[in-house]
Design a protein around this nucleic acid. Structure first.
Lengths: 205, 205
DNA sequence: GTCTATAAGTTGATAGAC
DNA sequence: GTCTATCAACTTATAGAC
């Protein structure tokens, strides 16, 4: 056990965290293809066997990395939910798109790893079934936000929430993927244009 | 040389094609993580060394698989460009979304492989620079279609084409990724709802 | 909890016969 | 063009000392 350590038990020497950080770095730079326990150990300046001590096996490590990033999504999404009714719809949408974009830029390598490894995918499909991490869940906070704005009369009364959330998330994801594939590492510059294109689909006419 | 063989040169024994098909199958079922030359040879009922004879190395094989699927995108996209001005905008958009969805369902495992392998990603980043396959190019046919519809006055005169194309492609891609992650293999059922949500962003008010 | 050392298996790739 | 045989390097994982 590490992380929440406050003096009880063995002192936290940080190897576990170093391993997680090294894993994430390799995933982002080189991809799962080059993610070997030896390379992780080298970058974390730790023994290879420490990986197995902390995470049981390679897949356990990958799972831990994914788990580490799930709360971040809630942060991004719930930040916007809280803003429902405040500020302009345009500003909120820009905030949501940029927030999702930054989030996706960070987790795209990890998502790619999940998609690239059948075993890892299977482990998350199980979890998805019991409702904890199912991919469609990603839409829920956005749906909540839109529902609140609809209740307040700031978006069309007949807005179909799930498709609308899908369009927003899909647009943010696509921007992140495009930028990663083209090797650009700067934040997106065209948020305003995307927002202005999206808005007429949301507001009353 | 195989494929276009029409009697000249050595007879086409189909090993090359079998290797490509086996590669695609493994990618779809298990992901790059399990894509070994040995497994490919086994599934293709061919010798492992034949892979190296035809594709030089593992990366060359992956490149060949990607290349095999690029024309398919043009087919999907250009089908819709041809329909500009014909049928209803709603029908065309539904056709485009479903076409892109089917396309993405097929290439998602391949795209995942590219994202998961840094070397492969690098090879395509180079190509992208010289303009042949750059990811943003995926938007061009959709931009062309929207431009034609705009010229005909069937979409808003002030529609911002690139963001609009991004939204359409992103939505289609997101649906495909979601469905793959949740293990569902059927075509999308909610196209109509998505189209009706998207449409107000495109048409004149 | 972290290390060193090591085992057993798999990997991508080559040489050479047919 | 396709095969069999082979290799050195690397892979995940374990045992046991500290």
């Amino acid at each position: 056990m590490t992380g929440g350590n406050r003096g009880r038990g063995r002192p936290d020497t940080g190897v576990r965290e170093a391993i997680l950080a090294a894993t994430e770095a390799i995933l982002a730079e080189a991809g799962v293809a080059r993610l070997s326990t030896k390379e992780i150990a080298r970058r974390a300046s730790a023994a290879e066997s420490s990986i197995f001590y902390h995470f049981t096996d390679r897949l356990g490590l990958l799972q831990a990395v994914v788990r580490l990033h799930l709360p971040l999504y809630r942060d991004v999404a719930e930040e916007v939910v809280r803003r429902a009714g405040q500020g302009s719809l345009r500003d909120n949408l820009a905030l949501l798109l940029d927030g999702l974009d930054a989030y996706y830029r960070r987790i795209t390598p990890i998502l790619a790893a999940v998609q690239a490894d059948g075993d890892l995918r299977a482990r998350f499909a199980e979890r998805g079934a019991d409702g904890a991490v199912g991919p469609q869940r990603a839409l829920l906070p956005i749906v909540d936000y839109l529902a609140e704005e609809r209740r307040l009369g700031r978006v069309r009364a007949d807005l179909d929430l799930e498709p609308a959330a899908l369009v927003i998330v899909g647009t943010a994801y696509q921007r992140a993927v495009f930028r990663r594939l083209s090797g650009v590492d700067a934040p997106a510059a065209d948020t305003a244009r995307v927002v202005d294109t999206l808005l007429p689909a949301l507001i009353a006419r």
